[in-house]
Nucleic acid binder design. Structure first.
Lengths: 237, 237
DNA sequence: CGTAATATTGAATGAACTCAAATTGGGTGG
DNA sequence: CCACCCAATTTGAGTTCATTCAATATTACG
């Protein structure tokens, strides 16, 4: 059914899976669960057991520090695992929560272990987690070296490509169901400044953002301005 | 021999290995190689095959972006793998290079595969790579949310704990064989500002830094000021 | 429809940057 | 062993990007 096609679609991008593999993944990708906006799926300090698969909506990995500041370290979009490997560690060193209302599937530890006994599945999961790490590295580059305007543009480009890969983009436009505060906490800048820089991108005719619907009006221009190069997403055939 | 004790020491911190496992790792941890300062071990775009193990000196993972800016995404200290898993990806999306003269061991792809057939070794490597990812996440928090002064303090605390784990610290003092430019590129600030903030930490009596020898004069004070909490290093017994 | 959350704008402040110059240190060759 | 040179560190002054604090619109939602 449609619920898991997303994950399969992502995993099979690089290497095909056997019918058996597909069936196994389908079987464990249930039941579907609705989670409200701004709910934690796992919290820092918890003993990690299950893994979540996002089917709709946006979630994130984040950490709170003294003074109430929050850093978002990853966005999870439909088709993404929330860190299938973390359960090897004794305690979570960060939290995972929804940024919008989400449909998720909880996959239990033993299901993961069963699935990863199949070499093709193990390799696919492995690959997905390497891409996660690559994205994280690029975020570090983004925050460490680019101006606020570039950071936003870069993130919007990344989401364009990632959402394209799971079929959530139409005419260079996609749903961005999160607040500017969330964007700000992901980019290491203030909400106020995020808002101003979004305005700049709009004035330059690069994007449109209204009611959480983002339209990239000039894809090449946005990529150029923000130094975006999709290599790090490792999505080539 | 002493060359590999470092790696074994790190890997066995959590789970013991069998004599056989140890022997296998020892056998593949040769020959030792000297690499000069500021040499690349792997370069962005390369097809990754081998993995490097650092035995002495500092190396780093980094990325260059337009305009000659460099972001360092990880420091590798003695006992660290330079990313044993990356070779699953088709092309490197970043480079790895030395920051000081280093002693390294090149471990070939098939040796890694042979070693990871042993469950205990596989788990140990797996764990090490999860810790790498956890460190990367904390760096994102550091750069995204903290002031330059806190960033430096936090990094110095992290290195204190990591180097302690491999026996490179004496009396809260350790060798930091890298330039302030390297520090700056890891922290996402200018060299000039890094220099000034180091001066502030010195004036506050928290540290001493002379001839690449760092002394943390007030460990608790430095941790407190920089919001450092070692949890993310997952070094508990 | 009303109310709380989110987005937007303004003005003043501050942290970090740029550009430049001066100083120190380490290494090299005579 | 000293003189020299290049690299790294340090200091100064002016500028800029981003923040803070506040007030005002706008939107989402029950």
């Amino acid at each position: 059914m449609a619920t898991t096609n997303l994950l399969l679609r992502k995993l099979e991008r690089l290497h095909p899976l056997t019918a058996d593999d597909r069936e196994l993944i389908e079987r464990h990708s249930r039941p579907l669960r609705e989670v409200a906006i701004r709910q934690d799926l796992i919290r820092e300090g918890d003993v990690p057991t299950d893994v979540f698969l996002i089917l709709s909506g946006f979630a994130c990995r984040y950490k709170m520090i003294e003074g109430g500041r929050r850093q978002i370290m990853a966005f999870f979009v439909p088709g993404d695992f929330c860190d299938f490997q973390v359960f090897i560690l004794k305690h979570m060193d960060h939290s995972i929560g929804t940024l919008s209302r989400c449909q998720v599937v909880r996959i239990r530890r033993d299901a993961i272990l069963e699935m990863t006994e199949r070499p093709a599945i193990a390799r696919a999961f492995w690959w997905a987690s390497l891409v996660d790490a690559a994205v994280l590295r690029e975020w570090l580059v983004n925050i460490g070296q680019r101006t606020a305007e570039e950071r936003i543009g870069h993130l919007l480009c990344e989401l364009l490509v990632r959402l394209q890969a799971v079929g959530f983009v139409r005419d260079n436009s996609y749903a961005l169901p999160i607040s500017q505060t969330d964007l700000a906490d992901a980019l290491g800048v203030t909400v106020v400044h995020t808002n101003r820089m979004l305005a700049v991108l709009r004035e330059q005719g690069l994007i449109t953002l209204d009611r959480h619907e983002l339209l990239v009006r000039d894809v090449e221009g946005l990529k150029r301005r923000s130094g975006f190069d999709p290599n790090y997403l490792h999505l080539e055939p």
